[in-house]
Nucleic acid binder design. Structure first.
Length: 513
RNA sequence: GGGAAAUUAGCUCAGCUGGCAGAGCAACUGACUCUUAAUCAGUGGGUCAACGGUUCGAAUCCGUUAUUUCCCA
C-alpha cells in the first residue's frame, strides 16, 4: 500500500529497530508494572520531602519508583540526557546519567531511543537545580519503538483535517483533546448515574430497525443477508422505549448512538449520542424539570456557579430556565399578534416573504411558521430557553393539548441558539397515533422525505394501553460542547465522520461522470 | 445546494511580477554531566494535493477533480 511506504526518516528508524533486534533487545516490550503515574510520582516526592530537614532538601531523592510513558522530548547533553515522558495524566522529566546507566545502556539510550518511543523507567524522584521534580533514572526498559516521527514540539499538529483523520496523533500532540474527551466521559457517567439515582433503568433497544421511526430524519439504509431484508440504522430509540412502557417498565432511559443521514456541520455528526428517557405517569412538565436537572447537575461538575464560558460568551445556566410559547415568539418576530396555528397559509406566505424566509411550495402554513422560527428565532435563544406549545402537525408522537387542540404538550430546549433537547407528553391514544401516522404518510407522498413512516407494530403496542408518560431526548454531544467550550461537534467526538480518501481520488477524472 | 479559502520536506510555514525548491523544528553525524522550544558545528530529506492547458520555461497563470475549513441557505 502506497500510503504505508516509508520515507527517509521512517526508513532510518526501521533500521534502528533491526539493529536493536540483532543486539537481542525486544523493540516492542512486555508488561511493565508501574508503581506511579507521572502525577503520582510528583506528589510522592512532594509528600516525602516535607519531612526532610531544610538543609538536606536540595539533595533529597525518594526511594525508587517505576513510571512509564511516551518520550515527548529529549535534550541530549553529552554524558547526561534529559527527557520528558507523557502518560495519560501528565508528564515528568527524566534525568539520565551515563555513569548511572552504564556505558552500553547509555549508548543505546542516546542513539536508539528518541521522541515518540514508549519506555518504562526506574529511579528515585528529586528536584533539579531549576526546580523541576524529575526522576533520577537507574534503569530504562524499552516498551515500544515508534517509526513515525512526532509532529513538531512547539506548534504541534494544527492541520484540522489531519487532526480529525489521525486523532491518535492529535491526542499525543494536543493535550486539550484528551482533556475534552475525558470530560466527555465524565459527563456521560454523571448523566448515567444521575438517571440511576432518579430511579430510571438503563436499557438497550435495537439500533437496527425494520422501520426508521421516532424522529423526522432520513435514515441510513443497510441490508441483512440471511434475513434478506432492508434494515435502517435507528434515527431515534423512541418507539422501542415506549414499547417498554407498554410492557410495564415505568422509568427507562437509553444513552447511546443514533444515526441520521443528513448534512455534516459544526453541530451535526451523522452518528451522535442522545440520552432518551421515558417516565410513566408523568408528562411534559415532569421531564422539563428533569432536563434542567440533568444538564445543571453535569455542569456543576465544572462550574459550581453555573456561569458557563462558551466561545467568548458566558452562558448563565442558573435555574429556573425561561419558558416561552413558540407561537408567541413567532407572533413577536412577525409583529402579527393574531397569528395562530390555524392561520391561513396565505398569511404565513406573506409574513415569510416580508422576513425574507425561504419556503417551498409544498410547505403548509405550520411548516412555514417552523421555518420562520428556525431562521429568525432559534439563533437568538442564548440563555437556556424552553420553547413550549408546539404545533401538533409537526409533532406526530406528542399528546395534543386539551385546551388548544392544534397545539401539543411539547418543548424544545435551546441554549446558545442550538437545540439541546426535545420532549413531550407522549401520545398514548392508539387511534390518534394511527391518524397521525397517516397524516405523515400524506406528507411523505407530498414530497417530505423526512416525514415519519407508519409503524404498525407500534400502533399495535399502543392498543394494549400505554400509561401517560413524559419523554425526553437530550443531545449529549451538544451538552459536551457547551461544557468543554468546544466550537465544533467534531472536537467532542473521538473519531468524527469524515469522507473516505478513495484510492483513485487523484486519478484522471472519469469523463462518463 | 451556493460562495469563499486552504493544500509546498515528518510537523509548522515562507516562496513577490512565471526563471536553480526555502526556513525553523524533527531526523542523521559530531561536541557538551542540571537541561526544559537546551545550545553549538555539519549532513540528508520534495510526485509543490491530482489531472490537463497556456508558455521557451509553471509551486506561481487558466481549467477540471479531490479533501478540508469557514460563511450562507
Amino acid at each position: 500500500m502506497d500510503e504505508l511506504k516509508l520515507n527517509t526518516t521512517q526508513e532510518q528508524r526501521f533500521q534502528v529497530i533491526e539493529e536493536l533486534r540483532k543486539e537481542g533487545m525486544d523493540p516492542y516490550g512486555q508488561r511493565f508494572d508501574r508503581t506511579h503515574s507521572t502525577i503520582e510520582a510528583k506528589n510522592y516526592y512532594e509528600k516525602l520531602v516535607c519531612d526532610v530537614p531544610e538543609e538536606e532538601k536540595e539533595h533529597f531523592t525518594t526511594p525508587d519508583i517505576k513510571v512509564a510513558g511516551r518520550i515527548i522530548g529529549k535534550r541530549d547533553q553529552g554524558k547526561t540526557t534529559f527527557m520528558n515522558i507523557m502518560d495519560m495524566v501528565g508528564r515528568i522529566q527524566l534525568y539520565i546519567r551515563k555513569d548511572v546507566l552504564g556505558e552500553d545502556n547509555y549508548a543505546i539510550l542516546k542513539k536508539k531511543i528518541y521522541a515518540g518511543d514508549i519506555i518504562g523507567v526506574e529511579g528515585g524522584c528529586f528536584r533539579t537545580k531549576t526546580g523541576e521534580i524529575s526522576i533520577r533514572v537507574k534503569n530504562v526498559t524499552l516498551l515500544s519503538k515508534s517509526i513515525n516521527p512526532l509532529p513538531e514540539k512547539f506548534h504541534g499538529l494544527t492541520d484540522v483535517e489531519m487532526r480529525y483523520r489521525q486523532r491518535y496523533v492529535d491526542l499525543i500532540a494536543n493535550p486539550e483533546v484528551r482533556d475534552t474527551l475525558i470530560k466527555r466521559s465524565k459527563i456521560i457517567k454523571n448523566i448515567r448515574d444521575f438517571m440511576g439515582t432518579k430511579g430510571f433503568l438503563e436499557v438497550e433497544t435495537p439500533m437496527l430497525h425494520p422501520v426508521a421511526g421516532g424522529a423526522a430524519a432520513r435514515p441510513f439504509i443497510t441490508h441483512h443477508n440471511t434475513l434478506d431484508q432492508e434494515m435502517y440504522l435507528r434515527i431515534a430509540p423512541e418507539l422501542y422505549l415506549k414499547r417498554l412502557l407498554v410492557g410495564g417498565f415505568e422509568k427507562v432511559f437509553e444513552l447511546n448512538r443514533s444515526f441520521r443521514n443528513e448534512g455534516i456541520d459544526t453541530t451535526h455528526n451523522p452518528e451522535f449520542t442522545m440520552m432518551e428517557c421515558y417516565q410513566a405517569y408523568g408528562n411534559m412538565e415532569t421531564v422539563l424539570e428533569l432536563a434542567e436537572a440533568v444538564i445543571c447537575n453535569a455542569a456543576e461538575m465544572f462550574y459550581k456557579d453555573l456561569q458557563v464560558p462558551y466561545q467568548g460568551k458566558v452562558i448563565n445556566l442558573s435555574r429556573p430556565w425561561k419558558r416561552v410559547s413558540m407561537l408567541q415568539l413567532v407572533r413577536d418576530v412577525t409583529g402579527c399578534q393574531e397569528l395562530t396555528y390555524s392561520s391561513p397559509r396565505e398569511q404565513l406566505v406573506e409574513l415569510a416573504k416580508k422576513l425574507e424566509v425561504e419556503f417551498e411550495e409544498k410547505d403548509t402554513a405550520v411548516k412555514i411558521m417552523g421555518k420562520i422560527f428556525d431562521e429568525k428565532i432559534e439563533s437568538t435563544l442564548i440563555e437556556p430557553t424552553f420553547v413550549v406549545e408546539y404545533p401538533k402537525e409537526i409533532s406526530p408522537l406528542a399528546k395534543a393539548n386539551r385546551e388548544k387542540p392544534d397545539t401539543c404538550d411539547r418543548f424544545e430546549l435551546f441554549i446558545n441558539g442550538k437545540e439541546f433537547a426535545n420532549a413531550f407528553s407522549e401520545l398514548n391514544d392508539s387511534e390518534d397515533q394511527l391518524a397521525r401516522f397517516e397524516a405523515q404518510i400524506e406528507q411523505r407522498k407530498a414530497g417530505d422525505d423526512e416525514a415519519h413512516e407508519m409503524d404498525a407494530d407500534y400502533v399495535n403496542a399502543l392498543r394494549y394501553g400505554m400509561p401517560p408518560a413524559g419523554g425526553l431526548g437530550i443531545g449529549i454531544d451538544r451538552v459536551v460542547m457547551l461544557l468543554t467550550d468546544s466550537a465544533s461537534i467534531r472536537d467532542v467526538i473521538a473519531f468524527p465522520t469524515l469522507k473516505k480518501i478513495s484510492a483513485n481520488q487523484n486519478q484522471k477524472p472519469n469523463p462518463e461522470e
